[in-house]
């Protein structure tokens, strides 16, 4: 498996359940216009600037933008497969594959129906199409289409792990599970109020409920609800970082931290307006960083988890 893990496990000192910071002001860095998606490739972050039709390569340890690359119209999703960076362009109906070291474009592939979500399953890149309500499996080496499979309505995000691909269907209030090898449907589970973001931990699927102000944890095997965590307004992106989940709340402009063991909220951090995508980084100089892309003020923000926990 060529996944480059950017997670780190670090010891967390026991803390009181409701310790919450607002004093921390994450550092913000300007990028292009309307960023929603963000991903880490091992040394740099890649941010999709949807209204510029570009992506920005941002050096984590250098703390600055290194490069801007033009892609198809309205890039709203980014993923890293260990070797290449992939960008989904919602209005261009294309997916672009780039080399992370220099941003050169390896290929641009047609994926119809409004591609707006990406996930790598270890061998293939999966693309969710929001208008056609399908997911497409592309061979990661050359972008060849392996298959297209129907899912629920308005599939927004994807996550892949352990041979399964999960899809959040925002309008049909469900998550779908597909077998990665052949796209066979393995189950569809109800998750209310506009499921938006997904994070997988092996036993559970954590789903942000955009209109429901909560994160719902489902058992992966049968979709049974294991916990429900209150978060901010419009929770969207969600990512693991060492024993916790970090959730971007688009409508309240905060990030909520949840404890993975039981989903308890641990902290709420204000960030720039309208955060959507959230990613973790691990680099020699910075250590672990939590990065949030804020649609509202054209920036990304860095949260140092050591300051919070």
């Amino acid at each position: 498996m060529r996944l480059r893990s950017s997670l780190v496990v670090f010891a967390i000192v026991a803390l009181s359940p409701a310790a919450i910071w607002s004093a921390i002001v994450p550092r913000a860095f300007r990028v292009g216009r309307g960023p929603e998606a963000i991903a880490f490739d091992g040394t740099s972050l890649w941010i999709a600037n949807q209204f510029d039709d570009t992506i920005t390569r941002f050096g984590v340890d250098q703390r600055r933008a290194l490069q801007t690359v033009a892609v198809g119209r309205r890039p709203v999703a980014i993923a890293f497969d260990g070797a290449h960076v992939w960008v989904a362009s919602l209005f261009a109906n294309t997916v672009t594959m780039l080399r992370p070291d220099d941003g050169s474009v390896v290929g641009t592939f047609a994926v119809g129906g409004g591609p707006g979500g990406l996930a790598f399953d270890g061998a293939s890149m999966w693309v969710a199409s929001r208008e056609s309500n399908t997911v497409t499996k592309l061979r990661a080496s050359d972008g060849a289409v392996i298959g297209t499979f129907p899912v629920g309505r308005r599939p927004i995000t994807l996550a892949a792990r352990d041979g399964s691909v999960w899809v959040a269907n925002q309008t049909s209030n469900s998550v779908s599970r597909l077998r990665a090898s052949d796209g066979a449907p393995l189950g569809t589970f109800q998750v209310g109020d506009g499921p938006f973001g997904l994070a997988l931990d092996g036993q559970s699927v954590w789903v942000t409920s955009f209109f429901g102000h909560r994160v719902v944890r489902l058992r992966a095997s049968d979709g049974a609800v294991q916990s429900v965590s209150p978060v901010g307004d419009g929770p969207s992106g969600i990512v693991f970082a060492g024993g916790n989940l970090w959730v971007a709340n688009n409508g309240s402009s905060t990030v909520t931290v949840l404890r993975q063991t039981d989903g308890a909220p641990l902290a709420t951090i204000p960030v720039g307006r309208g955060p959507f995508g959230i990613a973790t980084s691990l680099t020699p100089v910075t250590g672990v960083g939590i990065w949030v892309a804020s649609f509202g003020n054209n920036s990304i923000a860095l949260i140092d988890p050591r300051q919070i926990l």
Binding site: G34, D233, G234, N250, G251, S252, S253, R273, G274, F295, G296, N297
Partner: peptide, 14 residues
């Protein structure tokens, strides 16, 4: 003009 939600209320440019 960015049309958004801000702390649960409707906002323009925050």
């Amino acid at each position: 003009f960015r049309f958004e939600r801000n702390n649960g209320q409707w906002a323009v440019n925050g």
